[in-house]
């Protein structure tokens, strides 16, 4: 019995192997791009890479927390757009930025609560609940605020927009600082808070977490509200940088796939339980380098999508290979 159990799919050293492969792949890409691509290995490009990745990293932190709890948030990008729309509409109407921010945060908490309520209390699978809420949110905001348009222009001169797209200190862009703050906050949440431990436990074995008496419903609320708040932050950073809120980000879907790509590539399996914020850093390293290098090489976005698809597929196959589900352990109790 002991031997059988020990042979089962163990997230031990072999699980770490996937992380090491991704780190190795990122390192290899850095070396290749440095040699082959002009202007890759410069301080300026590093800054561009970090700034461009900021919103993706922030979103991935939110998604990682959701996925570790064995959930999925397909409404993340819709929530991001909703947050950015609310905030920009308010400041365009002359509402002071702090008030606008508070109102927007309230909207995001409402979105997170709605998702969590559907999942934890109505007990709808996270995939369906968040898919429905994503469609609802997108439709509602386009109808109510944009009157059917898909683009919202930000007041570029507004101090809030200037702050978000500018630099906090000379050479330190605000998005990068916000990104680091989000990573640190997520790390503390997952590592040191009771909710973080419960999230890990829920992803590992939901029934056991429930029977142990962990507050699984409250924690589900924490998870989806946290995800919605990261979505808000990412939305502010992204729209301030581009000067627009673009609803096509939701409808063409690639950003959502990028986020899931980062999470899975970092070594967090979609069934939850495993991994932490470290995995996000690993996943983002590969994707950011790949994206930046390919753009510098003038690879078309269509071709970039093809390559990202292949990378994701490779990661999933590798994950299946390194973290196998042992059929024998599933049937062992069946005497």
């Amino acid at each position: 019995m002991a031997e059988v159990v020990a042979r089962a799919g163990v997230p031990g050293p072999r699980g770490r192997l996937l992380e090491m492969i991704v780190v190795g792949a990122a390192a290899a890409l850095i070396i290749i791009f440095s040699v082959a691509v002009d202007g890759f290995a410069t301080a300026g490009n590093l800054g561009v890479m970090l700034s461009n990745s900021a919103s993706l990293v922030i979103l991935s932190c939110g998604m990682a927390v959701v996925i570790i709890s064995r959930g999925l948030d397909l409404s993340l990008i819709a929530a991001m757009i909703a947050g950015a729309t609310t905030f920009s509409t308010l400041i365009a109407a002359g509402v002071p930025a702090p008030v606008a921010l508070l109102v927007t945060i309230a909207v995001m908490i409402a979105i997170g609560l709605a998702n969590a309520w559907l999942i934890a209390y109505v007990e709808i699978p996270a995939l369906l609940a968040t898919l429905a809420s994503a469609m609802f949110i997108t439709g509602l905001f386009r109808f109510a605020i944009l009157r059917g348009e898909y683009l919202l222009l930000l007041p570029k001169s507004n101090p809030a927009v200037v702050f978000l797209s500018g630099e906090l200190m000379p050479g330190v862009p605000t998005p990068v600082v916000l990104m680091l703050v989000t990573v640190a906050a997520s790390w503390i949440l997952m590592r040191y808070s009771t909710a973080g431990r419960t999230i890990q436990a829920m992803g590992d074995n939901f029934q056991a977490a429930r029977l142990t008496g962990l507050p699984v419903r409250t924690t589900t609320i924490v998870v989806y509200v946290f995800a919605a708040l990261t979505a808000l932050l990412a939305g502010l950073v992204m729209s301030a940088a581009s000067g627009t809120v673009d609803f096509r980000t939701v409808t063409n879907g690639t950003l959502l796939f990028d986020v899931i790509l980062v999470v899975v590539l970092g070594g967090i399996p979609l069934r939850g339980g495993h991994g932490g914020i470290r995995n996000i850093v690993i996943g983002i390293a590969l994707i950011a380098v790949l994206r930046n290098g390919m753009t510098l090489m003038n690879v078309t976005t269509q071709m970039q999508d093809v390559i990202k698809g292949l990378v994701l597929l490779t990661a999933i196959v590798a994950d299946k290979y390194f973290n196998p589900r042992d059929a024998e352990t599933d049937t062992i109790g069946d005497l």
Binding site: Q200, D204, N205, Q207, A208, R210, L211, H274, G333
Partner: peptide, 14 residues
């Protein structure tokens, strides 16, 4: 204390 510890007893990754 559950009758099937693997199903709803312990957290295996922990």
């Amino acid at each position: 204390v559950s009758e099937d510890r693997k199903f709803d007893g312990f957290f295996e990754t922990m």
